[in-house]
Design a protein around this nucleic acid. Structure first.
Lengths: 241, 241
DNA sequence: GGGTGAACTTAACACTTGTTAAGCACAGAA
DNA sequence: TTCTGTGCTTAACAAGTGTTAAGTTCACCC
């Protein structure tokens, strides 16, 4: 873990809340980030049951919310730079899952006492924080829908389409190829299937010329058909707000 | 639709936020409910794309968030009395699904302009509202987990176990039998399966003496085994907060 | 350069679930 | 009462997915 203080820019944070916040408000938020750490792959940011005194914003890399139940691991959400990965720990206190980094990641911490001050004095920022958690809930609902309606190939397509859209929204990638440090077994954990079946699905999408996944790298070869097989419509990401 | 003004008590609202709010704060919230309506079965409280000027609290009956996609309907969340069913419409403005009543329901409305006032002047209440949406997100995550891990019989068991726990938490039922106006086809919509398969599952749980579902009435015959087949642990409902 | 382990790949078979088709039970309307 | 529609039930078959068991590839370390 490498630690640094008061980094100069958080372009992701600025990028994310672009239209809704003034520069002054963005500065308030940015200055609340007291400590920044570089984490390795598979580090636990916050584990189940912990009472957090701070919340975490993901600055670089990926993170996921992982629930382990009788031996098997399941991924219930994914996070990209700019996300408050455990903002809900602020109001909920106790958290029912682990937060784990995927690949090398940089995170910033925000003390809950500072969030108290925001809630007391900055109604517009409060609403913004609230909005951030509602966006999480909207993404959860879309995951519920995809798990209810899609078969495993559609589910993987949807997942990749979502990650691409979210990365592009924060300006990390313009191309349709990006680093994505998840193994096939972990993709299976996020789609509610088995590694073996995930492998069948990966092969199928590769053979159809839609997608190429190998060694932590994803290349979207045919975005239109990816969206089609994943029934993907980005409206739920509220990128226009 | 029958309309009444300023109902005397909202025991469900009081029941839900019991420990966290003072009586004075509960009164503030309660007085914000401007209009109360009695709705019939299958009424749309709010439909996709609408820009709501108010949010809805469910006082009696059930409601669900329904997403229709190429002809088929899917249920992504269920609501019991005491829930703000579309609080997220306040911060998100545009909503990506329909809200539909199941059975006869009574709802109250809260103007967004009044919520603005709360956010500006009542930090503790603001936090409470935020908590309410985080609770929704926690329930969403549990649904994601159950859809990823459980087969259809586990999924139905989990659904029934959750509804029972939530009804008991707001003090509507002490027994393990309750009115639940959902058809097998609608239960299938909520579990991501087909009506035919839901019927197999209902029969199986009935034959095993775990559950009895008929004509909109559910009777839990063996709660321990229901929780076991549904891998149900109520911690995610945060009823202790 | 060979060994090691993790990730990936493939195959065969069993089980779960979807599909199509049909008939039954029950409540409400005429 | 009969008619009618909706919800429920069942069966047979097809498709999707889980399980078990191998084998392969690749990066990394000795």
């Amino acid at each position: 873990m490498v630690s640094e203080r008061h980094p100069k820019t958080f372009r992701f944070l600025k990028g994310r809340m672009r239209s809704a916040l003034s520069e002054a408000e963005k500065d308030i938020l940015e200055n609340l980030i007291g400590d920044v750490q570089q984490l390795g792959h598979g580090q636990v940011i916050l584990s189940r049951g912990e009472m957090a005194q701070q919340s975490t914003i993901l600055i670089e890399g990926f993170a996921a919310r992982v629930i382990s139940r009788n031996g098997s691991r399941h991924i219930v959400s994914l996070h990209v730079p700019g996300d408050f990965v455990d903002l809900h720990g602020y109001a909920l206190r106790r958290i029912d899952h682990d937060l784990v980094t995927f690949g090398v990641a940089k995170v910033g911490y925000m003390a809950h006492s500072d969030l108290d001050a925001i809630l007391a004095r900055e109604p517009k920022l409060s609403r913004m924080l609230w909005f951030a958690s509602l966006l999480d809930a909207a993404i959860h609902r879309e995951w519920i829908l995809k798990l209810e309606t899609l078969s495993a190939d559609g589910c993987l397509s949807h997942l990749i389409a979502e990650v691409l859209a979210r990365l592009q929204a924060v300006g990390i990638t313009q191309q349709e190829s990006f680093a994505f440090p998840f193994t096939q077994a972990e993709l299976a954990d996020a789609c509610g299937t088995t590694p073996i079946h995930m492998n069948r699905v990966v092969r199928k999408l590769r053979e159809e010329g839609i997608l190429e996944i190998s060694r932590g790298q994803v290349a979207v070869l045919d975005k239109a058909r990816l969206h089609e097989t994943g029934a993907f419509d980005p409206a739920y990401l509220y990128h226009d707000l």
